[in-house]
């Protein structure tokens, strides 16, 4: 079998495995939403309307049908990417994703960049110079970054950089003037502004982005640092590293070529899992910084018990995580030839 063929086979199998994964996921989301008593209608409007009217509205939305019927209905909708309309403000999940997804995407990508740009080198230094003073500092930094909740870090950052130093804006995604002048092309504000050549606006959004992206990035960075550190340390003690040294390969090359690349394999694997951490952290970070993303919407629907909204957004988040883990597995197969077999 040719190499390309085996990679293609691997990817196809991996995609086929997504189907049962997504099915289990949808089922869990559905069941969790049904564990709580009542329906979205009674949860939202209970006490405000007479019971007869609530029952009538429930019937209109189909919540009086047997659970199994609702389940298959939901599955069938999910297959067609139809996640319904929110009860509280009558938006389709699709339009929510289009409207608010861009902000979440911007935030998470920026946070990931922050985490990678600072996390990988710090982890490499800590792993290379283990049990030294820099290593100790980096490790403490990593633990704090991972352990401190984003709403706390975000609050401190807002106090220091926005209020006391007045360097950066404290919240929102852009100034009112930028919001008002921006035209919608892709629903990703940063790109829309760039398309219009509104560079002042782009700079404005980037300024707004720095604090939330760093706050969320710190969370993920902690994991990267510790992971890279352990793996670099392990790789440097590896047999092939000693063998490379025995062939006169320079220490610099041993670290960069032999140890670091091997250490990255598990890091890439874990990056798939980080997607979940990143999205979870995004919900908290968005709320802290009034960032108009999906996380803010999710919290809004949670507070108003809008089960359709919560269900739709969680399903979307979960699908994203599944999709990212697929991408990560493919990247992993490209880096590490052993994965393909």
């Amino acid at each position: 079998m040719s190499r390309a063929g085996s990679l293609r086979g691997y990817v196809l199998v991996r995609i086929a495995l997504m189907i049962p994964m997504v099915w289990v996921l949808l089922t869990v989301v559905f069941l969790m939403m049904r564990v709580a008593p009542g329906s979205p209608v009674s949860a939202t409007l209970g006490g405000k309307l007479p019971p007869a009217e609530i029952a009538e509205r429930e019937a209109a939305l189909g919540f009086d049908r047997p659970l199994i019927v609702q389940y298959f209905d939901y599955l069938w909708d999910a297959v067609r990417f139809q996640f319904g309309t929110t009860v509280t403000d009558g938006q389709t999940i699709g339009s929510l994703i289009v409207e608010n997804g861009g902000a979440t995407l911007t935030l998470t990508v920026a946070a990931l960049v922050v985490a990678l740009v600072f996390g990988l080198p710090l982890g490499l230094i800590a792993g290379r110079y283990r049990e030294t003073i820099p290593d100790a500092f980096i490790r403490v930094f990593a633990i704090l970054g991972y352990a401190a909740p984003p709403f706390f870090v975000g609050l401190l950052a807002q106090l220091l950089f926005a209020k006391n130093l007045d360097w950066l804006p404290a919240s929102k995604m852009a100034s009112p003037i930028t919001q008002a002048t921006a035209e919608v092309h892709t629903h990703i504000l940063l790109i829309d502004l760039a398309i219009d050549g509104n560079w002042d606006g782009v700079w404005d959004v980037i300024q707004h982005l720095i604090l939330p992206a760093t706050t969320l990035g710190l969370l993920v960075m902690g994991v990267f640092i510790r992971l890279v550190r352990v793996n670099v340390g392990q790789a440097l003690g590896g047999d092939y590293v000693e063998a490379a040294r025995a062939r006169g390969v320079s220490e610099r090359r041993v670290v960069s070529r032999h140890a670091f690349r091997n250490a990255l394999v598990p890091v890439v694997t874990v990056m798939g899992l980080q997607a979940a951490l990143l999205l979870g952290g995004a919900v908290l970070t968005e709320q802290t910084f009034s960032w108009p993303g999906l996380g803010t919407r999710l919290l809004q629907y949670l507070n108003s018990r809008d089960y359709i909204g919560v269900q739709g957004l969680i399903t979307f988040f979960a699908l994203i995580v599944v999709f990212i883990s697929l991408i990560i597995d493919i990247v992993n197969a490209l880096i590490d030839p052993r994965v393909r077999y």
Binding site: G238, D239, Y240, A243, H258, N262, V265, I335, R338
Partner: peptide, 8 residues
């Protein structure tokens, strides 16, 4: 078995 770099 472990003396060659698996990624090279």
């Amino acid at each position: 078995m472990t003396r060659l770099n698996p990624l090279m």
